[in-house]
Amino acid sequence: MSARRGTTGRGTTARARSGRAAARAVPVATAVGLLLTACATGPGTGAGTSSSAPTGSASSRAPLTGQLVVFAAASLQQTFTALGDRLMAQNPGLHITFSFGASSTLAQQLEQGAPADVFASANPATMKAASAVTDRPVTFAHNSLEIVVPAGNPGHVTGLADFAKPQLKIALCAVEVPCGSAAATAFAAAGVTPAPDTYEKDVTATLTKAVLGEVDAALVYRTDVRSAGDKVQGIDFPQASAARNDYPIATVAGARNHAAAQAFVDLVLSAQGQKVLTDAGFDAA
């Protein structure tokens, strides 16, 4: 079962903080897009794109210039920002703008004509939803569930079976959100019936409960455990692969800066890009 919405990662904080944030993201992103459009049509900008595209399509030797707009799932904020900085350092004429958010929100914005060049989603379903406006997607990473416990593991949790103990405080994502449905798949695979004390509204809220020590264990993505630092510990479990989340990336059809878009996708798929992703806790493609 694939997750409907990419709400993984700490980048969802804004959405987690307020139910209105998701709604607010739409006009903001649109405004950014309009601004960028205005820049691109201005004199002296974006000229490099159209001239370089037909000649050296495969070559990344020619320096990239102009604006590149990347829409990416919130969980990719750290890794993609790092990769973007790297690409801009190599191409001083290139400026990359990121819009991080819930994958489903981003997909809706793309369908409404938001001017992006690259779209990276936290699950195949939302990528599919945007297939009308994207090129062929490629899976570039996977994210697996991991048990997270507060530092010191006060509940002495060792595996998924501990989630059935009523004396432990347990937090899970609500089944209505992607991490919750992934957790349900994992429990089904392990044959465990969990006894949670709370069904959190997204993965960030679930992680927060473990960070604050309010629960003895929770189930979140491995990248979330990494991002929380030493306030928590991660514990792997064998059924994690049963509920793995695929991350697809695609250039947007008719991207204004196709050369740079392709270069960014190439970078993400390169050994260098994969290293950044695995360092953050993703599984390589």
């Binding site: 919405r5 609500a174 709370t198 069904y199 959190e200 509204k201």
Partner: peptide
Amino acid sequence: TITFAGNYPGTTRTMPLAIYLAMEQ
């Protein structure tokens, strides 16, 4: 409520929480 009390049917899942989760699906 959802931050402090959590979300569990019958104990802490009030109507606004139920509405929020319904919105997801």
